[in-house]
Design a protein around this nucleic acid. Structure first.
Length: 616
DNA sequence: ATTAGGG
DNA sequence: CCCTAAT
């Protein structure tokens, strides 16, 4: 029953981001992955739980709060049932969380200011419009903490500020939602290209991030097939190897670079634009990425038809009972918490409307020589690094965090009218991710001295009404991995006191191993096979580095491991019947050589081994 | 960093 | 192609 409702709303439960590749391999495939998934599930359960339990049914979309005008986030609205009719009360004056709510940071969609980021489902006929996501940067006044811009490489000092896990209000349906990551992914595949532009001083990303990122991407130069003539077939050569009759030193020339990676998350066609350099030199540049899920139906249709996001079955969560019925929620449904029971009064439910959650600030570090595609991945990585590792919800009452989970709302004062508007929710990472090495070992990226990056964890604070307080977990406490409430204190944070929450290195291999990319599949062409065969004929198996140097030096994407693997498959291919072969057919002549070469060198190796043995 | 081999 | 273990 629940499942049906979910389908109706287009959510088959939650789809979590892929668990980091590295996490599931080296240390065993099971436990870590499971743990991560569990964390993710818990995180979103928290989200959903809060949203679902506390949200109030409202007949109309929540009015947009223009009080801040620039940042429609950070609105946590608390209303009571009695106040329900008073639409004016739906939204209270909210603080602009960022001291610098700059017009510059305002984003546009389709050229129009987009302010209504989110709605309640009830108000939009369950059209799923209320799931929105956006990443935008806080512009300006960031230089103090910015990255040094090295000559010729620089970095995009883009303080990505992403937010808006928008309100989720489905009183009469199963709570549904999805991770921002998934939303992003979905958007990548569905949102058509929008007006995009990159300006001199700042970048405006309009439309989906995907579109945006392709602004500077140029058509793929399909040179890969352009193997030089010297790789053409030649069967008339002198002996080179054991039984060779081929011209020497066939070398495949291929201008393909090694920008052949793609995020494993996205099983859509390789991003042809990855290769283009993104030249963002100055720290004053802002990257703005906006995601607005406007048309869910379209998205969903695409999702299904294109199989862009292979849906992975996930167990449905054991949802709290609030959604098991299609009927509207009554008091008990909405707030089925022990508090109420303690009170013994069914009519005293507190209804809360959470307009949006703010996502932690991100700090992205990318060399200017990075490709747009890599920027995308980096941002994605940053987002997922925060969202993926588990969030939990904190409650703030009048700026003070309520740590005792066992307290009733009555006891904490949440139920009191005067305090209700000072109720805030925070999403905070379970474990602050603070240990990103500033830079990779890539020498080309290291310039002009070290780049000290502030790495502090700032909780996601979303608090209405008041408070310049943010909770800043100390490094010591958060790095332990446990939430240690006692070690945390409410700390006054200056308005712009936005420390980077996460620093994401451009090269993920040097940083945490999350979301390692899988290299794009690149089938060997016949000329490549030719070159490989010839090289192996000459050098023998087992000298793959030499083979690489000899015949594939210009093809950066072909590693010696690749060549070794290809040889392996070639041998296999040669042994199977032609009907079983797939892909571009390899000329039988080549396959014959493969078999001959393989046999020759196998025999030779065996002989050598025997000799070595005899010697001993 | 390479090599060999399983997945 | 990926991932490892062993060199």
């Amino acid at each position: 029953m629940v499942l049906q409702r979910r389908l109706e709303y287009g959510f088959n439960g939650y789809r979590m981001p892929e668990v980091p590749r590295a996490s599931r391999s080296a240390r065993g495939r099971g436990p870590i992955r499971s743990k991560l998934e569990a964390n993710q599930i818990r995180a979103f359960e928290s989200l959903a739980s809060v949203a679902g339990k506390l949200l109030q049914e409202s007949k109309d979309p929540l009015p947009t709060n223009d009080s801040c005008g620039k940042d429609p986030h950070f609105k946590f609205d608390v209303i009571t049932k009695s106040e329900q009719q008073d639409k004016g009360n739906l939204l209270k004056e909210e603080p602009c969380e960022l001291g610098s709510c700059d017009e510059e940071t305002f984003l546009y969609v389709h050229g129009l200011p987009e302010r209504r980021e989110s709605y309640t489902l009830n108000g939009v006929s369950h059209s799923q419009e209320n799931f929105s996501y956006e990443i935008n940067s806080v512009s300006k006044s960031l230089d103090s903490e910015g990255i040094n811009i090295g000559k010729g490489l620089g970095a995009v000092d883009s303080r990505i500020f992403c937010g808006s896990y928008s309100n989720i209000v489905v009183n009469d349906s199963p709570l549904s939602g999805e991770s921002i990551v998934d939303l992003l992914k979905r958007k990548r595949a569905t949102e058509p290209s929008q007006d995009t532009s990159i300006k001199k001083d700042r970048i405006e990303f309009l439309g989906s991030s995907e579109d945006v990122m392709e602004v500077e991407e140029r058509p793929h130069e399909l040179v890969s097939s352009g193997h030089d003539a010297k790789t053409l077939f030649s069967r008339d050569c002198k002996n080179q190897g054991p039984f060779l009759r081929h011209r020497s030193n066939i070398r495949v020339v291929n201008r393909d670079d090694d920008k052949n990676t793609m995020t494993k998350e996205f099983e859509h066609p390789p991003d042809n634009g990855d290769r283009t350099i993104m030249n963002l030199a100055a720290s004053g540049h802002d990257g703005k990425i906006r995601q607005v899920n406007r048309n869910w139906r379209t998205c969903y249709a695409h999702q299904r038809s294109q199989k862009i996001y292979p849906f992975k079955k996930r167990k449905l969560f054991n949802w709290s009972p609030l959604n098991t019925s299609d009927r509207g929620c009554n008091c008990e449904d909405i707030f089925n918490s022990p508090d109420k029971i303690v009170n013994g009064d069914n009519c005293c439910a507190v209804k809360l409307s959470i307009k949006s959650f703010k996502v932690p600030e991100l700090f992205i570090e990318v060399p200017t020589t990075a490709t747009v595609g890599s920027l995308k991945r980096t941002v994605m990585e940053a987002v997922t690094s925060i969202l993926g590792d588990g969030l939990h919800v904190g409650i703030l009452v009048q700026g003070k965090k309520v740590r005792d989970d066992n307290k009733t709302l009555l006891q904490t004062g949440i139920s009191q009218d005067d305090k209700r508007h000072n109720l805030g929710f925070i999403l905070e990472p379970k474990r602050a991710k603070l240990t990103y090495p500033p830079f990779s070992e890539d020498p080309s990226l290291v310039s002009g001295g070290s780049q000290e990056l502030t790495r502090h964890s700032t909780s996601l604070v979303s608090q209405p009404g008041t408070s310049d307080f943010k909770e800043v977990p100390s490094l010591a406490s958060t790095s332990i991995g446990k939430t240690l409430p006692t070690c945390q204190a409410l700390v006054a944070v200056p308005p712009i006191g936005m420390k980077a929450l996460a620093v994401v290195p451009f090269h993920r291999k040097s940083g945490h191993q999350e979301y390692v990319q899988r290299r794009m599949r690149r089938p060997f062409s016949v000329p490549e096979v030719e070159a490989l065969v010839q090289a192996v004929e000459k050098l023998g198996t087992g000298r793959w580095r030499d083979v690489k140097l000899r015949a594939f030096e210009s093809e950066k994407h072909r590693t010696y491991v690749d060549l070794k693997d290809k040889w392996k498959t070639l041998v296999h291919t040669a042994r199977i019947s032609p009907q079983q072969r797939r892909g571009e057919p390899v000329p039988q002549e080549l396959l014959d050589r493969v078999l001959a070469t393989h046999a020759y060198w196998s025999h030779r190796h065996a002989k050598q081994q025997a000799q070595a043995k005899a010697a001993v």
